[in-house]
Amino acid sequence: MTGNQYRALYSRSPDEAYAALFSEYCDYVYVIVFNRLRSCATREDAEECVSDIFADIFLGCGAGGGLVGDMKGFVGTVAKRRAINAYYRLSARAARRSDGNDEQLAAMDSGMDIEAEHDSEEVRRIILDKIDELGEPDSTIILQKYYYDRSSNEIAELLSMKSSAVRMRAARALGRLRDLLADVGITL
């Protein structure tokens, strides 16, 4: 969505502009937030963070004056900034609850090992390649079940399928994914 499109919608109805902006980027923002908070937050925390981000974005965009070009960069920046802040806050809370676990606190600001990070990114690329090779709806089922930790009922609702079919496909797809990854030397 571009700034011009947003402005045009906003002049007709702010609600319409918010709904369109949200519809366009809600999955993107959720992915950013979940990716950062997965290890330390509940789903409710993640949803709170997503709604905070969009509240910020709606307020920041206003009537759209000054917005030019694709809005994805702006949305992504706000999302990443908020997600990182939320991560620190939630990790700090978790560390305090576990009686000042030094390791957890240390992990919060551990410096980035560029070489290791590069390797990790390569493994992520391979995992996602193999998940994509499963084809739809199996690739979405696998991600939803094992990465987003969704129940079969929730996935069934997302994909308009029966939950029994989701369970069956998830088990089979996981087996296939293991085989595909084993072929390239990765054990899931």
């Binding site: 999955d27 789903r43 990790s120 990114e121 690329r125 997302l158």
Partner: peptide, 29 residues
């Protein structure tokens, strides 16, 4: 959140991974 070893690898990823993950349907209506 439930942890399945292997999928944890996808956490804290760079933009390219984020882009690819957001290519799949995430939230229900």
């Amino acid at each position: 959140m439930k942890e399945i070893r292997g999928f944890d690898m996808l956490e804290n990823a760079k933009d390219t991974t984020i882009e690819r993950l957001s290519g799949h349907r995430v939230l229900t209506d």
